[in-house]
Simulated scan of single mutants.
Amino acid sequence: MPIDNMMIKPSIVICVAEHDGYERKIREIQAGIEEEGIPYTLLQGDEGCEAVTLAWQGAAASQLGVGLGVSLTGLCIHYHKLAAPKPLFTSADTVNPGTLRQFGYNAARLVKGLPFKEKLERSFTIEGNEEQLFEQIQVLVKKILQENGQGHREVSRW
């Protein structure tokens, strides 16, 4: 896929191999990029290409050096300074809207030089007694306060 990157505005290049349902995937990825305020360009890649190849082609075409590849079986974020077979992020989860949006966020954050968004490692449930629920909420509130650099006091019970 020869691409003249002088014709592409400074943006993240999303390179997609068209397949059933690719529009939904692209919508979620674009939403993540847009929320971070970075422009993107959508290019059609060769049918049957793997996500890593598509992402590398996108990164090479991007004046910002960031490419995102979307294939039937995978997602990938690549950076132009990395070797072609060594992408930054890959995922076989092409169904989960949260994963798709996270790829958009992280591609944009690579451009901005911000820390990447990570998936929540722990989900909080309401099962259990009141004391367990309080402990879960307390852990969550402390984590939020620490991430925002606010407050160093103990969280007391209301």
Rank of each mutant, 00 (worst) to 15 (best):
V95W: 11
Q57G: 09
N96S: 14
L88W: 00
G128T: 03
I33H: 09
K81F: 05
L114F: 04
E131L: 11
M7H: 02
A31N: 09
L133R: 14
Q146W: 08
G37Q: 10
V16P: 07
G74N: 01
F134A: 06
I12H: 15
E34D: 08
L100F: 07
E154C: 14
Q146R: 10
Y40E: 03
E18S: 04
N106G: 06
Q63I: 00
I12K: 14
L64Q: 06
K142H: 06
N106H: 04
P2Q: 12
S123G: 10
M1Q: 15
A59G: 01
H152P: 09
G21E: 01
R122E: 12
M7C: 10
K86L: 11
G58Y: 05
R157W: 06
G45V: 13
D20F: 06
H78S: 09
I26K: 07
Q102P: 03
E34A: 07
T53S: 06
I14M: 14
L120H: 08
R24D: 10
L54C: 07
E131Q: 10
S91Y: 02
Q30R: 12
A55P: 06
P87I: 00
R153I: 04
A107W: 03
P115K: 00
G21T: 13
L82W: 01
Q30I: 12
H80W: 15
Q146E: 15
V139W: 13
T41K: 01
R27E: 13
H152K: 13
D4L: 02
T90N: 08
G128D: 10
H152W: 00
F89W: 02
A84D: 03
K25E: 02
E23A: 12
K112T: 00
L140C: 05
A84G: 02
Q150H: 14
L140A: 13
G69P: 03
E130W: 03
L75D: 04
M7P: 01
V66S: 01
I137P: 03
N96G: 05
L72D: 08
G45W: 04
A59Y: 04
S11E: 00
S156G: 11
N148Q: 13
P2G: 05
P85K: 05
Q63V: 02
E131C: 01
P97H: 12
P85S: 07
A60Q: 15
I14T: 02
G32E: 02
L88I: 01
R109G: 06
V139G: 11
I126F: 12
H19C: 13
T99F: 03
N5K: 15
I3W: 07
K142I: 01
Q102R: 15
T99K: 07
W158G: 13
L72N: 02
Y105Q: 06
S62Q: 06
N148K: 13
L68F: 12
W56L: 02
N148W: 10
I144R: 10
A51Y: 09
M7L: 15
E50H: 05
R153E: 13
F103K: 08
E127N: 03
K142Y: 04
A51G: 07
P115N: 06
E23L: 01
A61D: 12
Q44M: 08
V70A: 08
N129F: 03
S123Y: 12
D93G: 11
A92R: 09
L133H: 09
